[in-house]
């Protein structure tokens, strides 16, 4: 890693989840992708009612059940045991994906391998042909959900950028990302490219630019 990268202060996973949660409005229907995005629900500010959709057939996903009260037939898309919140409903797969593709879900929060400055998203396959491809519901989500938030580390483990002029991995969707939340900054995707919303923990913009693979406009 470069000296510049070492000067940067990074949000923890919990702090990043809390930062995303700040931007989820009261009354939203939200789909949280598998992995880190599932933690966002724990940080939504008091007083907001947010209704969570899970692709496997529930809208109104509630918190995990107490130990011993798990129902193996009540799970979320990450295959974790959940409960049904007040106002929840169950449905089959065609209805679940009609909610996504049909534009009924307001916000989806997804992880990503790469995001390009034009909003292209790569989050389903790498260039490693050893691994069988597995797409799940990612392409359906980005095809229909109005606002796509990406939540990810700003860089790969080796320090290489995940925010790029152009994705190098296979795409999930073209021009679909609205906003990117990383451990260093929040960036909007605009017709001009990435535009800074805020910097995490007083980081220096030039230092963040140095670890980003595309221009950041202000």
């Amino acid at each position: 890693m470069s000296d510049v990268a070492e000067q940067l202060t990074r949000l923890s996973d919990a702090e990043l989840a809390a930062r995303v949660a700040e931007d989820i409005p009261d009354g939203s229907y939200v789909n949280l992708g598998i992995g880190k995005p599932t933690h966002v629900s724990g940080y939504v500010p008091e007083g907001r009612e947010v209704i969570y959709h899970s692709e496997n057939g529930i809208i109104g996903v509630g918190p995990p059940p107490p130990e011993g009260e798990e129902d193996v037939e009540l799970i979320d898309a990450s295959k974790r045991y959940v409960t049904a919140a007040p106002g929840a409903a169950y449905f089959d797969h065609p209805d679940s994906f009609a909610m996504m593709r049909g534009g009924h879900i307001d916000i989806a929060v997804l992880g990503a391998y790469q995001v390009a400055q034009n909003g292209d998203l790569a989050n389903w396959a790498t260039l490693d042909e050893k691994f069988p491809p597995a797409v799940g519901g990612a392409m359906d989500l980005v095809a229909g959900v109005k606002t796509i938030f990406v939540m990810m580390r700003h860089q790969n483990r080796d320090g290489s950028p995940k925010l790029l002029e152009r994705c190098t991995y296979p795409l999930t969707g073209l021009g679909v990302v609205s906003r990117v939340y990383t451990d260093l900054a929040v960036l909007d995707v605009t017709p001009e490219g990435f535009r800074l919303v805020d910097l995490a923990k007083g980081n220096d913009l030039e230092a963040v630019r140095a670890v980003t693979g595309a221009p950041i406009h202000t």
């Binding site: 692709e55 089959d92 797969h93 065609p94 679940s96 994906f97 996504m100 593709r101 050893k130 069988p132 491809p133 597995a134 797409v135 799940g136 519901g137 990612a138 392409m139 359906d140």
Partner: peptide, 17 residues
């Protein structure tokens, strides 16, 4: 990995539809 099966990957909503 052994090349013993064929795989067709379909987006989940497209599979359902």
């Amino acid at each position: 990995e052994a090349g013993e099966i064929d795989l067709e990957v379909v987006p989940q909503g497209t599979l359902a539809e």
